[in-house]
Design a protein around this nucleic acid. Structure first.
Lengths: 135, 135
DNA sequence: ATACATGCAAACACTTTGCAGCACA
DNA sequence: TGTGCTGCAAAGTGTTTGCATGTAT
């Protein structure tokens, strides 16, 4: 296993990333980093986040309708995505996977490894915006 | 509303698409169409499928880890994706959404519109392949 | 000193789009 | 006839990669 080094860039990227609580995409992290530290390249940001996801220190989310998002929250949880603005929030929901599987038809030939849930809806801010537009 | 026309291309694309029971991506449909009818362009295939999804005659699936897939099966159902080869199969699972929502924490500020489930696993064919590799 | 990491730009994969010519109704 | 559709190629989007250079250890 390749040995990792600590670099100035790594420090900055993860500091900025951990201050964002929006489940940002790599592009969003790059934007935020770039504002303060224009010398840091896009490739570095993408690479650092992808690597961190591979070693498991962050989560890389593949949500429908959106670019990959990165999440500091580890452990089993789900997400809700705002259909209007794309905002993402963590959701904790106890899902009885065994019970679901027992009643699931069509995956008998599969060795099921995981069940993932994703919620969609309208976030508070967008509800207000949409309400205002109506009136 | 724009009025639609029937064209030779439309006929061919959907005929080929409906013969594929793989939940193909637009690219896969294009490949299959292209084999038999090389005159039909990629843009047309992408456009036709996207339009059909918009009018609701097919489903456009946004699955994690894969390109958008198109599905002839309408109505509420879920999908299982093979982690190894990307194969997609339909799954029917009765999910008590109200019960799930009642126990979900983190989406209180959202107007929840939908809950989506996605299963991942290893398909039968890949299980065999992997088994053979072991021995 | 020597890997590993970075910056840059080019390459990628998938998809969408502008436009001139074509063809359905 | 006239608008909608098609093919082509170009542009878009988000992400990855090759390589020369820079740097942590």
């Amino acid at each position: 296993m390749k040995q990792k080094r600590n670099t100035v860039q790594k420090g900055i990227v993860f500091e900025v990333f951990r201050e964002m609580h929006n489940h940002p995409s790599a592009g969003m992290v790059y934007e935020a980093v770039h504002e303060k530290y224009p010398e840091i390249s896009k490739a570095t940001v993408y690479r650092l986040l992808a690597e961190a996801a591979e070693e498991g220190s962050v989560l890389r989310l593949k949500l429908a309708d959106a670019d990959d998002r990165y999440d500091v929250t580890l452990g089993r949880h789900y997400h809700i995505v705002c259909k209007s603005c794309g905002a993402v929030a963590d959701v904790e929901a106890s899902l009885n996977e065994k019970a679901v599987l027992k009643r699931a038809k069509g995956c008998e030939n599969f060795l099921v490894e995981d069940i993932h849930m994703e919620f969609t809806g309208i976030c508070e801010r967008c509800q207000q915006t949409l309400d205002n537009q109506k009136n």
